[in-house]
Deep mutational scan, measured.
Amino acid sequence: KSAVKALFDYKAQREDELTFTKSAIIQNVEKQDGGWWRGDYGGKKQLWFPSNYVEEMI
């Protein structure tokens, strides 16, 4: 599983989504079709976030 870095702040709209700030590192990313991926951040595990808010880390 990979890690991504947030390009923008994102505030969860639902309880199954992540809230994060710009430059946050989201771990254990599971990529899905449809523009939403799952990952771990801030003590939350495998919640959804919009993939267009992040960049992949190499």
Rank of each mutant, 00 (worst) to 15 (best):
D9T: 07
P50E: 03
V29F: 02
E30L: 14
S51M: 11
K31H: 05
M57E: 09
W48F: 10
Y10P: 00
Y10K: 02
D9I: 02
W37T: 02
M57D: 09
K45D: 06
E15L: 11
N28Q: 07
T21G: 10
Q32R: 14
I25G: 02
P50K: 05
K1Y: 12
F20P: 01
Q27W: 14
E56N: 08
D16R: 05
Y10C: 06
Q46E: 06
G43K: 07
G34R: 06
L7V: 11
A6V: 05
W37P: 00
V54C: 05
I58K: 12
Q13E: 11
V29Y: 03
Y41E: 03
N28E: 06
V54R: 00
E17R: 01
P50I: 04
G34N: 09
A12T: 04
F20T: 00
M57Y: 14
K1P: 13
E56M: 08
I58T: 14
L7R: 10
N52P: 06
R38F: 03
G43S: 09
V54I: 05
R14S: 13
I26V: 05
N52Q: 11
W37V: 02
F49S: 01
E15I: 12
D9L: 03
D9C: 11
K11V: 15
T19S: 14
V54K: 02
Q32M: 15
G39H: 00
L47F: 11
G42I: 04
G35K: 09
Q13C: 15
T21P: 15
W48G: 04
A3N: 13
A24F: 03
S51A: 14
A24M: 06
K31F: 09
G39Y: 02
L47S: 12
R14T: 11
G43H: 08
W37I: 00
T19A: 07
R14L: 07
E56Q: 09
V29P: 00
D40S: 03
E15S: 12
T19C: 08
W48H: 05
I58H: 13
E30M: 14
Y53C: 15
G43R: 07
W36L: 04
F49T: 01
D40T: 01
V4F: 12
I25R: 03
K11R: 11
D33V: 11
G34A: 07
N28F: 06
F20Q: 00
S23D: 15
I58Q: 13
K1I: 12
I25W: 08
V54D: 00
T21C: 15
L18A: 01
L18G: 00
G43E: 10
G43A: 09
Q13F: 07
V54N: 04
Y53R: 07
F49I: 02
A24E: 06
L7A: 07
Q46P: 03
T21N: 12
K44F: 13
G34P: 06
Y41W: 08
E55P: 00
A3H: 12
N52A: 14
S2C: 15
S51H: 07
K44G: 12
Y10S: 01
S2I: 15
N52R: 11
P50N: 06
L47R: 08
M57W: 13
V29E: 02
G35V: 08
M57R: 07
K45N: 09
A24C: 12
A6M: 02
K22Y: 07
R14C: 15
E30F: 13
G43T: 09
Q46A: 10
K22H: 07
K22A: 13
K5Y: 10
Y10H: 04
A3R: 13
T21R: 12
D16S: 09
A24P: 02
E17G: 04
E55R: 08
A12S: 08
E55N: 07
W36Q: 05
K22E: 08
E17M: 04
S2Y: 14
L18F: 04
W36D: 01
Q32A: 14
G43I: 07
T19Q: 06
Y53M: 12
L18C: 05
L18W: 04
G39R: 00
E30A: 13
K11M: 14
N28P: 01
S51V: 09
T21D: 10
S2G: 12
S51E: 08
L18R: 01
K31T: 07
K45Y: 14
A24H: 04
K44Y: 12
A24G: 08
Q46V: 03
Q46I: 02
G43V: 07
E56C: 13
I26G: 00
G39K: 00
A6W: 00
A6Y: 01
V29T: 02
E56G: 06
F20W: 02
G42K: 08
E15Y: 10
W36I: 02
I26W: 00
A12L: 00
L7D: 04
Y41V: 04
E30C: 15
Q32P: 12
Y10Q: 01
M57F: 14
G42T: 04
V54L: 03
W48S: 05
Q46N: 11
L18D: 00
K31I: 09
D33R: 10
V4R: 02
P50W: 06
D9S: 10
V4M: 11
T19K: 01
E55M: 12
F20N: 02
Q46T: 05
D9A: 10
K31S: 05
L7C: 13
K44Q: 14
K44P: 03
E30N: 12
Y41G: 01
G42W: 06
G34H: 08
L18E: 02
G42S: 08
R38S: 04
A3M: 15
A24W: 03
L47Q: 09
R14A: 12
G35C: 14
Y53Q: 06
I58D: 14
Q32F: 15
L7S: 07
M57C: 15
E56A: 09
I26Y: 02
R38L: 09
G39P: 00
K5T: 10
V29Q: 00
Q46W: 06
A12M: 05
E30T: 15
G34S: 08
N52H: 13
F20S: 00
A24L: 04
W48M: 08
E55A: 11
L18I: 04
N28W: 04
N52Y: 10
D40Q: 02
G35W: 08
M57V: 14
T21E: 14
F49M: 02
W37S: 05
Q13P: 03
V29A: 03
I58N: 13
W36M: 09
R38N: 03
Q32K: 13
R38M: 09
